[in-house]
Amino acid sequence: MVTENAGSPAGGRLVGRSCAVTGAASGIGRAVAERFVREGASVVAFDVDEAGLDRLAERFPDAVSTVVGDVARDEDARRLVAAAVERHGRLDVLVANAGIIPLMEITEATAEDWDHVMAVDGRGMFLTCKYAIEAMTAQDRPGGSIVCLSSISGEAGQRGQAVYGPAKFVASGLTKHLAVEWADRGIRVNAVAPGTITTERVARLYDEPGGTEYLGAIEKLHPMGRLGDPAEVAAAVLFLASDDASFVTGVVLPVDGGYLAQ
């Protein structure tokens, strides 16, 4: 159960800010985009899912514009950042959220599986951060905030994640290295590490054979005894993106119901 105020706006913490969110058509990315809009931001939403982006933009026509593309493609990542600068004059916040989550053991995985996940979750995060930093250092008032989406799988080992888990270690590592590299130029780089979150894909498991039993077992692995909600992750992303975290950089913040505390 989500806490009562998890999705409630806290008073315009991103008023006047230009923000780009990848993977914004669904799940955590969509929750982040929605929360940012309620906090006063202008959001450029990016995803391969054009229909999902259209639904988001229809809800917030004055605050959300969209770019369809694949973060793993250099030209698409560059185009996202250029769109934010062209439409809003600058880029203040990047949320590097786009990713895919295949679950398989190493004996099941192929080299193609590895390359595909690393292209989206690894290369895609690298590219969007690269072009965001280039824009943030070139604008009239240099600086900005980047929030990467890691995972509990990017902080601790888990079964069945021989491909996905290492990609999230990339997210955690990239966050720390970029934070040190760009701190003196006014760019903060942080990450959140969610536990299991009830995104659309996870919610569908309840209707699949064995899904209820599987999710029940996963819930028990989280000391709070439940799964998280995308709005709860969005609240943590908002904190790291906003001036409330002005002296915070290089942090990988768990949003995991106590999972990593065990």
Rank of each mutant, 00 (worst) to 15 (best):
I133E: 09
S150Q: 05
C129Q: 11
A138I: 06
L127H: 09
M136G: 00
C129W: 07
E134W: 00
D140E: 13
Y131N: 09
V117D: 08
E134I: 00
Y131G: 08
A138P: 11
R123N: 05
Y131W: 10
D115V: 13
S151H: 00
M118D: 12
W114P: 04
W114K: 03
I133A: 12
R141H: 11
S145L: 11
G124V: 03
G143W: 01
R123G: 08
E134M: 01
R141V: 14
G144N: 13
L127A: 10
F126V: 06
M136K: 00
F126C: 08
I133N: 08
D121S: 14
M125A: 15
V117L: 06
G144R: 13
S145N: 05
I152L: 01
C129K: 04
L149N: 03
M125W: 06
G122L: 05
I133S: 08
C129H: 06
A138S: 13
M136D: 00
Y131L: 06
I133F: 10
C148V: 15
A135L: 02
V117S: 12
T128K: 05
E134L: 01
F126A: 07
M118T: 14
A132W: 11
R141N: 10
G124C: 05
W114H: 03
V120P: 14
C129D: 13
G122W: 01
